[in-house]
């Protein structure tokens, strides 16, 4: 039972990090109609900025601020220089150009930081484990990630439903020509949305990098799952991204945690791990296929976008 609760918390934490990644991706796709493969590169930029600044100053919190700033700045620059030219093009051109950006960012980072992974130290305030009601011990930092993810989800909800920027984002999603005709500077809106999405990705990179490691190419595996998340949740929907991310996080973690154990009773542990993790990975796509059969536009998607 304790094991189930702990694995569920792990799934929740993983889901929250996927959400941070998917939120930016879904906004950019929903508002601008742009497929941004370079979103994983922005995740990596955030992680490296955090590692570099935390290493230089000794403060994890400055590193975290730097990850937001660096990823948002990188996002804004990329939008102004490259992405802006792609809105009118078809999706294939967008995929090609943003794939090129992955290569540019990866090699650039390798050139600046080298091929060695970097490791971050947790801030003393958040290190160690806490005892939860019921006696389960759980790492404080992972709990903090769950809390932070929930807070950001709530903040994004307020931003989109209660602010002028949110109104414009929703309007831009619905009908961009009309929004432009009403006098909204659509170019600036796009840059702002792109930078916001980049900052969230950068934050996710820094947080995940802190518990794991910071290395070139760390963003791409997460990017694939983030795309699955937004397809499940419905493209353009932040609420969908949250629900989709939690579903994917839970499915992946619980599947990988329990399937090999169940299979190991039948076959030898090495084969059980191979088959168990393979089935767990497939489960995510089964989930996606199931959602698409019932709701082709995703759980919270509008119209026939998917």
């Amino acid at each position: 039972m304790m094991l189930l609760i702990e694995q569920a918390l792990n799934g929740l934490q993983y889901g929250m990090m996927l959400f941070l990644m998917a939120a930016g991706l879904t906004l950019v796709f929903g508002v601008m109609g742009l497929i941004n493969l370079a979103h994983g590169a922005l995740y990596m930029v955030g992680a490296f900025a955090c590692a570099a600044v935390a290493g230089a100053t000794g403060s994890f919190w400055l590193g975290l601020a730097a990850s937001l700033a660096a990823a948002a700045a990188a996002g804004a620059v990329v939008e102004l220089l490259v992405i802006r030219r792609l809105y009118a093009r078809d999706h294939l051109d967008q995929v090609l150009a943003t794939f090129a950006l992955i290569l540019v960012f990866s090699e650039g980072t390798r050139w600046l930081f080298g091929s060695f992974p970097l490791y971050l130290t947790l801030p003393p305030l958040l290190s160690g484990a806490v005892t939860l009601p019921g006696g389960l011990q759980y790492p404080l930092f992972r709990l903090a990630l769950i809390g932070l993810g929930a807070a950001i989800a709530f903040g994004l909800y307020l931003l989109i439903t209660r602010t002028r920027l949110g109104t414009r984002i929703r309007a831009g999603e619905a009908d961009r020509e009309m929004v432009a005709a009403l006098g909204v500077d659509i170019a600036r809106l796009y840059t702002a949305v792109f930078a916001l999405g980049a900052a969230l990705a950068g934050l996710a990179g820094a947080l995940v990098g802190t518990i794991q490691s910071v290395q070139v190419g760390m963003g791409e595996p997460v990017l694939i799952l983030a795309f699955v998340v937004i397809v499940i949740g419905g493209i353009g929907s932040v609420k969908g991204a949250l629900v989709g991310a939690l579903l994917v996080g839970m499915t992946d973690t619980l599947g990988k945690a329990f399937l090999p154990g169940v299979l190991a009773r039948l076959i030898d542990p090495s084969a059980a791990n191979t088959i168990g993790s393979a089935i767990a990975s497939v489960l995510i796509y089964v989930l996606m296929a199931g959602v698409l059969i019932v709701r082709p536009q995703g759980l919270y998607g509008e119209r026939g976008m998917a």
Binding site: M2, N10, Q137, Q212, S213, A257, P269, A272
Partner: peptide
């Protein structure tokens, strides 16, 4: 318990939960 992990894995939360239990 005999547990195999993925080569290159970076998150061990699930295995640590198994160790605890």
């Amino acid at each position: 318990s005999e547990v195999y992990t993925q080569v290159g894995q970076t998150d061990y939360a699930a295995e640590i939960a198994q160790i605890r239990a």
